[in-house]
């Protein structure tokens, strides 16, 4: 046990806080739908990325930017999944049931009931508020969803619950998932406590596989990186031939946004 004890620490943390503040002021938690061509602005002098933006524009027309705070995957996934479900009533009902059953599962896995309640209640409150009904205008419900996901208190509580569900799934099938854990972790549980449950920790394939399996959802992730091929590569979760996900995310190194056709 050691710490680097000179005052650099305080400066580093101060700097981190300032960067955080800047990001918060610059980015909404979830942006409006914007034309995909906006990506060109970010890569004005970058031919490799511009070519990829061109390829993405041939497949997707709009995007939503998500605040880059390490929670972007869960926020993007949660938002766009609910957005899709609101327009698909039967699937919404099924999703609701899965969430309702998730609390008992998490408690069985030794998550503390007392704190789980808090997050579960909030996600259920959101689900109730955006449950599609015959009497309500779908666009109004979608507006409500957008509003709720941009309210930090709701939005972050949802992120926490999705993280817990992801961790729960990983633990439930620990034997399977531990084959894919790389790095310095003493166990799958250790990985969950350090890389899944804490806020602001970024997500990788294993997190996406687990949350899709837990919720019975599917997602397509389009990867845009510095690779030499001119086309972007899409990967479907879960990875099976008859899977055709209705929601898509754009991945750029360390960040996820939402894509629309």
């Amino acid at each position: 046990m050691e710490q680097n004890s000179d005052n650099h620490d305080e400066l580093t943390i101060k700097q981190q806080k300032e960067i955080e503040k800047e990001i918060n002021e610059q980015f909404a938690l979830i942006s409006e739908k914007i034309p995909i061509e906006i990506l060109n602005d970010e890569y004005a002098d970058d031919p490799v990325y511009r070519q990829k933006v061109q390829d993405i524009s041939s497949k997707y027309r709009y995007m939503r930017k998500i605040r880059p705070d390490g929670n972007c995957f869960y926020r993007a996934f949660g938002f766009t999944t609910l957005e899709y479900l609101i327009k698909n009533k039967e699937e919404f009902k099924k999703f609701r049931q899965v969430i309702e059953q998730s609390k008992a599962k998490l408690i069985e896995l030794n998550f503390p009931q007392f704190t789980i309640d808090d997050f579960y209640d909030t996600i259920m409150e959101v689900i109730n508020k955006v449950e599609p009904s015959d009497t309500q205008d779908v666009n109004k419900v979608l507006d409500e969803l957008y509003k709720l996901f941009n309210e930090q208190a709701y939005s972050d509580y949802i992120v926490v619950y999705l993280r817990l569900i992801t961790s729960g799934k990983l633990q439930e099938e620990a034997e399977f998932y531990s084959n894919f854990i790389e790095g310095n972790y003493t166990s799958l549980l250790d990985f969950c406590k350090k890389e899944v449950e804490p806020m602001y920790k970024e997500s990788d394939h294993i997190h996406i596989i687990a949350i899709c399996a837990a919720l019975g959802c599917a997602v397509r992730v389009v990867y845009m990186d510095r690779g030499s091929q001119s086309e972007v590569i899409a990967h479907d979760f879960p990875d099976c031939p008859d899977n055709n996900p209705s929601v898509s995310l754009l991945y750029r190194p360390n960040h996820y946004d939402v894509l629309y056709q």
């Binding site: 503390p112 007392f114 926490v160 993280r163 817990l164 449950e197 804490p198 806020m199």
Partner: peptide
């Protein structure tokens, strides 16, 4: 010096 007080804190933890 306890990791759950900083890096490994999660909102599911509590005072207890």
């Amino acid at each position: 010096c306890l990791s759950i007080l900083t890096d490994d804190w999660t909102p599911a933890l509590s005072v207890g």
